[in-house]
Design a protein around this nucleic acid. Structure first.
Lengths: 243, 243
DNA sequence: ACAAAAGTGTTATCAGTACACCCATGC
DNA sequence: GCATGGGTGTACTGATAACACTTTTGT
């Protein structure tokens, strides 16, 4: 069966990557650059995305797009919203850009976000000049991608409080303080270290390893891992009505 | 500007309606019926939905679809997921149906759910034979609509615990026990009446009225209302990390 | 020995849970 | 006066929040 691009349906991917060294939650963006007669007419950044093929599920499109950009597969992904305003691709630069591409100005995009570690991505030799930007310091963005990123971030903030997705942003072995730093980055809050520590260590699915950090220049911290098996086993909906 | 149907993009609406008398959470479905040479070849139910028009936002499509079915506007709605599997409309009956309609077999649908009260909907003279079905007793469903309803219901269950959307399913004036009954219907659990009562009455945005039920055959209950103004004013994210 | 980050305990308060009977009203 | 659903109180337990100093390690 021949597979073709569906010209009015795309998937856009908000790739969140946590940099454990700089403690920065980042978004991976590609460059959008266009010259005409020696003048730069478009130079900004956009999310990575692509048309859906006729044979593909939406999830498969997202997976494909991520793989082409980063080489990675099997990363956590979530479809979080479809964007389909008639004017979402109709500002001046977007129209200039669309003229150059096989692209329908009335395109609906299904947006996904991915959670991964910046250290897992090798950005050398990537054709789109992909770069990490801190979520709180984004560059000029084309199309409606600023809005898409904001909505992804909102969803992430809500979801990380009730589901153990935070561990998707961390290495397999992490310290308690790594987890705290990450929560503080995502939520923009400060957390009491003693209370947080106690709470996390008491979880049965947070497992202390027989290992400590190596290669750090100060006292090395205890390493832990997250056990999804145990989490799934003991998890029960607690129906805490908190309206 | 001329507006046309986008043939491969639709919106489907899961219309949840709570019947306060029977204490039943229902879904509004329309009939799909097709005869050929005197034989019934399709006879099942589907969600109400329609193509997106070129000039419309997705939200506008959903609003239009609800209005055409129920006459209602300004109801709570939420876009919760896009469904786009290549095979989502390709079982035998669906193909028969599609042959009869201006419809693309590779259609992506953006699904919304609405929250309202069954008593607000007048189903007389509706052309599609729309009927309420209890969420736990659905009929045969066409396309992938069973899956869509299930996912809408899951989202509703999660969301009603953390946002005051439950009041969208109740009349403006309600009793504490109405709210409890509704939670029990949605979540399929039993709740202790004394604890629930105390909890709800203590909320500042739950306001006791100078009114009691009228026309009930037993002791009339105190009526309350929900104040969105107060809710919005005192609401603060409490960042309760409950992983 | 010093700098830096890791790690530790107690108390007070609040929220959640479990549980059984009396009360007001319409009929 | 009785059947029905409305409404109430207490004690226990567990979780959360506030708060500051000591320990370990690498350099």
């Amino acid at each position: 069966m021949k597979s073709e691009k569906i010209l009015n349906i795309s998937v856009d991917c908000v790739v969140f990557g946590y940099d454990i060294n700089t403690k920065s939650l980042n978004v991976l963006l590609i460059e959008r650059y266009l010259e005409s007669k020696g003048n730069v007419i478009v130079d900004d950044h956009v999310l990575t995305g692509y048309h859906v093929y006729t044979h593909e599920t939406l999830d498969q499109t997202a997976t494909r797009v991520l793989k082409e950009l980063t080489g990675l597969t099997n990363q956590y992904k979530k479809q979080f919203k479809a964007f389909g305003n008639p004017d979402r691709l109709t500002n001046e630069k977007d129209l200039l850009w669309i003229k150059n591409e096989e692209f329908n100005a009335r395109t609906i995009t299904v947006a996904y976000y991915f959670l991964l570690k910046t250290e897992d991505v090798n950005l050398e030799n990537n054709k789109n000049n992909a770069t990490w930007f801190p979520i709180n310091n984004l560059p000029n963005l084309g199309f409606d991608h600023k809005k898409i990123i904001q909505e992804a971030y909102e969803d992430l903030k809500v979801k990380c409080l009730s589901e153990p997705i935070i561990f998707k942003l961390l290495p397999d072995k992490f310290t308690i303080n790594d987890v705290q730093d990450l929560y503080e980055s995502i939520l923009g809050i400060e957390i009491d270290n003693r209370n947080f520590r106690r709470k996390l260590i008491n979880k049965k699915y947070i497992i202390a390893l027989d290992e400590k950090q190596v290669g750090v220049s100060k006292r090395p911290a205890q390493l832990y891992m997250f056990s999804k098996d145990i989490y799934d086993k003991i998890f029960q909906k607690n129906y805490l009505i908190s309206i």
